[in-house]
């Protein structure tokens, strides 16, 4: 059974004229690392919200089709219940931190679910240690940088022990260095078995670790597959996404008749492919 399954799912927000999602069919299996990308307003955020039931429970509107999360139909299960399965990280870290210190923040989710205090304390300590938040322990969210806030928000989401972590542009408010370290932690989590859905524009940073790249445009999924395959499609240029520089070079070479052995995603890979081509 897939962890998440969209079956012919469409959604339109109340008061909007356009469908935010159009006939989405998507299945997400355990252990996958899926990157979702596409131009602004293409429905990425709505897709994330649909995974944990915020659409259609919190944001109401017109719905067709179904989304099943770990066997629950999101139309029937409350968001608070789905929170045990799907953890959601949002774009703006400040809006996710609702308490006055880190430990309380991490404890907030498990407390809501009624986990026993001893277990909560253990989880909090574990997350503070693994995500290196010790120095922030006593700080007010207001005193932290965006990157630190997002780390705490991640810890708070992971404290619910979800089976799938959905992160909606978690790096958009961060500086490049914090963004990189956050993404590194996400891919570590995936390596340890966490299913990951990540909305991200900076494909040069994430496509190497992702198992799948999903391309969205105007509410529909227009391409879905391994990153190398999706990025080599001409549709990437048509809808305008942040194709990694190395892949752009590959495409340029290909148009001019020079085909490298594989689609490179990083500068290093490109260098290796070019070297190979030269040696031939």
């Amino acid at each position: 059974m897939p962890l998440v399954e969209f079956v012919d799912f469409s959604f339109k927000y109340l008061g909007s004229d356009n469908l935010a999602l159009r006939k989405i069919d998507l299945r997400i299996d355990e252990g996958e690392y899926i990157v979702i990308t596409g131009p602004s307003g293409c429905g990425k955020t709505t897709l994330c919200r649909a995974i944990n039931g915020l659409v259609p429970q919190f944001h109401r509107g017109y719905i067709a089709g179904h989304v099943y999360v770990d066997g629950h139909d999101t139309r029937e299960s409350r968001v608070a219940e789905l929170a045990r399965v799907a953890g959601l990280m949002f774009q703006n870290p400040a809006n996710q931190l609702v308490t006055l210190n880190v430990a309380k923040e991490i404890a907030f989710g498990p407390e809501n679910l009624g986990v026993e205090p001893d277990k909560i304390r253990a989880r909090v300590e574990e997350l503070i240690e693994t995500l290196h938040l010790e120095h922030l322990r006593e700080k007010h969210p207001h005193e932290m940088s965006g990157g630190q806030q997002q780390m705490v928000a991640m810890a708070a989401t992971l404290a619910l022990e979800p089976k799938i972590l959905v992160a909606d542009e978690p790096t958009s408010n961060l500086d490049p260095k914090s963004a990189e370290s956050l993404l590194a932690i996400l891919s570590d989590l995936n390596r340890d078995g966490m299913t990951l859905v990540l909305v991200e524009h900076r494909l040069d940073l994430v496509s190497r670790n992702a198992t799948r790249l999903v391309l969205m445009d105007k509410g529909s999924i227009v391409a879905d597959g391994p990153p190398r395959k999706v990025l080599s499609l001409p549709i990437c240029e048509e809808i305008g996404i942040g194709i990694p520089k190395a892949t752009q070079v590959y495409k340029h070479l290909k148009r001019n008749g020079c085909v490298l052995s594989r689609v490179p995603l990083t500068g290093e890979e490109l260098a290796i492919s070019v070297e190979e081509a030269c040696n031939k």
């Binding site: 915020l54 968001v79 045990r84 809006n95 404890a107 989710g109 407390e111 809501n112 708070a156 989401t157």
Partner: peptide, 18 residues
């Protein structure tokens, strides 16, 4: 509110406290 909802705010009648 969206983020609190996603973290189970109001999920359980018996909320615990760390």
């Amino acid at each position: 509110a969206e983020s609190m909802e996603s973290r189970g705010f109001g999920a359980s009648e018996k909320r615990t406290y760390m």
